[in-house]
Computed example of a mutant assay.
Amino acid sequence: MMMALPIIGTQLVPGKIRLIFSLALTYIIVCADQTHLVLPSNTSFFSLFLIVVLQAIIGILMGLVIQIIFQTFMMAGQIISMQMGLGFASLMDPQNGISVPIVGQLYIMIATLLYLTMNGHLFVIGILVDSFAQIPVNQLDFDVLQIEKFIALGSFMFSYGLKIALPAVITILITNISFGMMTKAAPQLNIFTLGFSITLIAGFALIYICLSFMSAQFTEVSEMAHTTLVALIE
């Protein structure tokens, strides 16, 4: 889970730090609740291997569910960047190690700050502790993983990312249509020479306006992801 989480699992955090944090968290969980962490003495090596695989899958899924929150806003920022003509203006995303359009980088930075402000990381740790009570380590049953709910959350990521970017996309589309009509009516004016600048101004104005709604949008996406996270371990 620590490798898949969007904040501590990034390239900015050294592997040794993740390892130390994982060991410390493991020690705390073992000290807090040992009733669900005891394996039978006659556990075979193959059963032990399957138990480790099951627990690793649970941790990866938990980290990926939280990743979907951030990827929703990154995708929205990428759509807005492409519509504004800023697709060529990319920055290296330190969390994913890839080039991301500048608006997408802005959105993911704000999403990171909002998630830490809302104590989302503490919620994930609480879910991790509860997962051992809901799915004890001696319970070798892969059917407990409700993968279909994780897949449904992926479709929610695309639809909600488009929903966040929709105001800017529609506004820029209307602006481009207006430029096309003016160019058709008066070709000698060469309106498209000003089109790029006005499109940028309109895009930045829409981003400024939409940022005031980002907290509510982030809360909705987080609640959806956290609900799925709880459902994965029930």
Score class of each variant (00 low, 15 high):
His121Cys: 02
Ile233Trp: 09
Gly97Lys: 12
Asn176Met: 05
Tyr107Asp: 02
Met109Val: 06
Ala32Ser: 15
Asn42Ile: 12
Asp130Met: 12
Gln139Ala: 07
Ala4Asp: 15
His226Cys: 06
Leu23Glu: 12
Leu200Gly: 04
Ile57Ser: 13
Met109His: 06
Ala205Pro: 03
Gly63Ala: 06
Ile8Lys: 06
Pro136Thr: 10
Val144Gly: 08
Ile177Glu: 05
Phe192Ala: 09
Ala76Cys: 10
Ile151Glu: 12
Val13Arg: 01
Ser155Trp: 08
Ile170His: 00
Met2Asp: 13
Thr43Cys: 08
Leu206Gln: 03
Gly9His: 12
Ile17Met: 14
Ile191Arg: 04
Ile79Phe: 05
Met92Thr: 14
Leu128Gly: 08
Gly9Asn: 03
Ile151Trp: 09
Val53Asp: 08
Ile110Cys: 08
Tyr160Val: 10
Glu148Ala: 12
Val100Leu: 05
Ala168Tyr: 02
Pro167Asn: 12
Thr26Asn: 13
Met224Cys: 07
Gly87Asn: 07
Thr183Cys: 07
Val53Met: 13
Phe218Leu: 00
Val129His: 10
Gly77Ser: 08
Cys31Tyr: 04
Met62Leu: 15
Leu91Trp: 01
Ile151Val: 15
Ser90Gly: 06
Ser99Ala: 15
Met84Asp: 01
Glu220Leu: 13
Met182Cys: 09
Ala89Lys: 04
Asn138Val: 08
Asn190Phe: 08
Leu140Asp: 04
Ala56Asn: 04
Ile66Cys: 07
Val30Cys: 04
Ile28Ser: 11
Leu113Ser: 14
Asp141Tyr: 09
Val52Pro: 02
Ile174Phe: 15
Val124Ile: 15
Ile58Ala: 04
Met109Gly: 05
Thr183Phe: 11
Ile191Lys: 06
Ile57Asn: 06
Val30Tyr: 11
His121Arg: 05
Val65Ile: 15
Thr10Cys: 08
Leu122Trp: 03
Asn176Arg: 13
Leu25Ile: 11
Leu50Cys: 06
Glu234Asn: 10
Gln67Met: 03
Gly63Leu: 03
Thr183Ser: 15
Ile69Gln: 00
Gly154Ile: 06
Val52Gln: 09
Ile147Thr: 10
Asp141Gln: 12
Ile151Tyr: 10
Ile57Lys: 06
Ile80Met: 02
Phe132His: 07
Met62Gln: 13
Leu39Asn: 09
Ile17Phe: 09
Ile108Val: 14
Thr199His: 02
Gln83His: 10
Met1Leu: 14
Thr10Ile: 02
Pro94His: 05
Ser215Gly: 07
Gln134Met: 13
Gly203Gln: 01
Val137Ser: 05
Ile60Gln: 13
Gly77Gln: 00
Gly59Ser: 08
Leu189Asn: 12
Thr183Pro: 02
Leu229Pro: 03
Ile51Asp: 02
Thr199Asn: 14
Val169Cys: 07
Ala225Thr: 02
Gly77Leu: 01
Ser178Met: 09
Ser222Gln: 01
Ile28His: 09
Ala56Phe: 08
Tyr208Gly: 12
Gln83Pro: 01
Asp93Tyr: 01
Gly77Phe: 00
Asn190Ile: 06
Ile51Ser: 11
Ile201Ser: 10
Met74Ser: 00
Ile198Trp: 01
Leu39Phe: 11
Met3Pro: 03
Gln55Leu: 07
Ile60Asn: 07
Leu166Thr: 13
Gly180Pro: 07
Leu12Met: 14
Glu148Leu: 08
Ala152Asp: 13
Pro6Val: 01
Cys210Gly: 02
Phe204Lys: 04
Ile98Asp: 08
Ala89Pro: 00
His121Ala: 13
Thr199Gln: 11
Ala165Arg: 01
Ser197Pro: 01
